[in-house]
Amino acid sequence: MLRNAVQSFLAVPRAPDPPRRVWRDWALVAVLLPTAVLEGVLREDVPWRPVALVLAVGSILALLWRRTHPLTVPAVVFGVVTLGSVVSLISDLPPIGLNTMVAVILLPYSLVRWGSGREIGIGLLILLIALVTGSAAEYNGLGEAIAGGVFLFFPATLGHGVRYWTTSRLQEREEMRLRERELLARELHDTVAHHVSAIAIRAQAGRVVAATDPSAAVDALLVIEAEASRTLAEMRVMVGNLREDEAASMAPPQGVADLERLVRSVGDRPRVELELTGDLADLQPAVGAAVYRIAQESITNAVRHARHATRIDVRVAGEEHCVRLTVRDDGDAGASAWNSSGYGLVGMTERATLLGGSFEAGPGPDRGWTVEAVLPRSGAAR
């Protein structure tokens, strides 16, 4: 189990690529470099002054690459620090370095913030070795050694917290994008498929009667024009909602009040009859939109697939705690009015389920196909 946990940690990929250099790093280096030079020149108790100054300047300049090379930079810097501690232990010289080099505590943060799991593991081992050798070279008691460890590893803990928070935010945004994609796919399927089906049916009818009844062909062209214009308008709304640089459309969603226009747009082949009963006022917008979309998809599928259907009955009943939608056609008995591999059933089931309702679709008791959706009036999601 421990082995699996270690392997899982080592397999953690790097965090999303950070900016190569940001203004904060440049500002930090611009402040620290003159400070290190002044300390190296003016401070009197600096052992190996030229070496200490070179180490300090090199460590400070390395901060510019801490984001893009989260392991290499701390490995080099703390490797040099460890080497200096070992030299101090062997030669009994005081530790080599300037106080300005305290800025290297940013490197543990960068290691955990942007490194991969393997890089973090290697880097933390290097930090631990540097801590042990540094404490041995300048040992002033166990308490100070522990305090030094906390001081060194606290930035790593902070980097882990920031990385976790950032990753969570990215995952939430990705989940939101996926939900928006699903919603868009459902809207495109429900809306565009309905209008395109109406256009195709009217075009076929116009072609049949064009030679014998030109006026009927003209009427069919008028319906096609209206349906195409409505489809373009709805697609513009959807595309506008997807663009980040444009305000989202404030148009209210279509609901029960729009069902009459939906029924009229189908025509009389087959004839669609609408019946509204009960209390349908004050429905939640999400409930009204779901009723409209489920009815639209049901009518579209009946027009497309119900063989020899002459009538489609749409009934919406407002009950005390719910709204019941029923769509029936009188197509041939046993005929498959639905494409089970399509997205219609999936989309309608999702709409009903998300609102805490139920959805059923199947062959009617005598003939045709029956769709029934029951949605709570409050639209409370499960």
Results as ranks from 00 to 15, higher is better:
A56D: 05
T72G: 09
W23K: 06
G356L: 07
R324T: 14
E144M: 13
A217P: 03
G318F: 12
L221P: 12
R43N: 12
A52R: 04
G288Q: 07
L355W: 07
G117D: 00
V54L: 08
G364S: 13
W369H: 05
A337D: 13
E360P: 14
A373Y: 01
V196I: 09
T300E: 06
A295T: 11
A373M: 06
G331Y: 01
G331L: 10
A156T: 13
I146Y: 04
A381S: 12
D282V: 06
E182C: 09
A380K: 05
N140Q: 06
V150Y: 14
T35R: 13
A337V: 14
D213I: 11
R307V: 03
L106T: 13
G364W: 12
L259C: 08
L83M: 12
T166Q: 15
M238W: 11
E297S: 15
T157K: 11
G148C: 13
A56F: 09
V54S: 06
A352N: 02
E244I: 14
T157Q: 10
R179I: 03
R269E: 15
P214A: 00
G362C: 02
R351I: 11
A373G: 02
I299C: 05
R186P: 02
A309R: 11
G134F: 00
A381P: 12
L42E: 07
A216P: 04
M250V: 15
V323M: 07
E44T: 07
V263I: 12
T82H: 11
S341Y: 14
A248C: 00
R21Q: 15
D190C: 08
V77I: 13
I294F: 02
I294C: 06
V54D: 05
L127H: 01
L221K: 09
W338Q: 15
L142D: 09
R293L: 13
V316M: 12
V37D: 04
E180I: 01
E360W: 14
N301V: 11
E360T: 15
R3V: 15
V223S: 15
S8A: 15
G342C: 03
G40S: 08
G347Q: 08
L355P: 06
E227H: 00
D279H: 01
D313T: 12
R382I: 03
R311C: 10
I120W: 00
V57L: 07
